[in-house]
Amino acid sequence: MSRAALLVLADGRFPAGGHAHSGGVEAAVASRTVHDTATLHAFCQGRLHTAGLVAAALAATAAAGHDPLELDEAADARTPAPALREVARKLGRQMMRAARATWPAPELDHLARHRPRGAHQPVVLGVAARAAGLTSSDAAHAAAYDSVSGPATAAVRLLSLNPYDATAVLARLAGDTDRIADRAARTAARVAAEGTGALPAASAPLLDITAQEHAAWPVRLFAS
């Protein structure tokens, strides 16, 4: 594996569309749930342990070589809000575009051919990691980090939060992010024997509800 390839994949500048999404923090800012550094930390921690864990497990399992189409169905089953399913597929398509240009591989072509409107983003991320020669654990780390770095960046724009404070939130969550990624990678190792039922299905109902509402806002800074 290449450690540098993981940096490329996990870089916030990787051109896969993430910059236009807040990971639910825009709705949380509007309801004053997130209004400062401490509440951003709490939000990111909650997201990491729910949506982040599920995304990391899907990515890790895809990176391990499990059938991505089956994982895509598992992702659908774990994403109850229609708005979030749509966002996940849209971002999956954008990730696919970036990944195929960056690490061309037959496995990416295969998934793109079978999911022309986009597969769930974590699944594409996992296949992309595999194409980049990365491990299951790498993919889990990239997905787990992605689940908190997006909201933190968005909060800087939405709240005029001090960017150093927002980055410090991510740094303080690093241990948690590692643990979630490790747990996701261990789960991925079990899926081959036990099936996708072994994947976590942690959910954050409030994120689901507010994402659905956010999708109908007439004026917003972020697409989700």
Partner: peptide, 20 residues
């Protein structure tokens, strides 16, 4: 296309949404 408060990013640094 929605640009997440960064219109220049969407046309220059990460053009994926516009290409879509």
């Amino acid at each position: 296309v929605e640009t997440g408060a960064c219109p220049h990013t969407a046309i220059r640094d990460d053009i994926s949404a516009n290409l879509e």
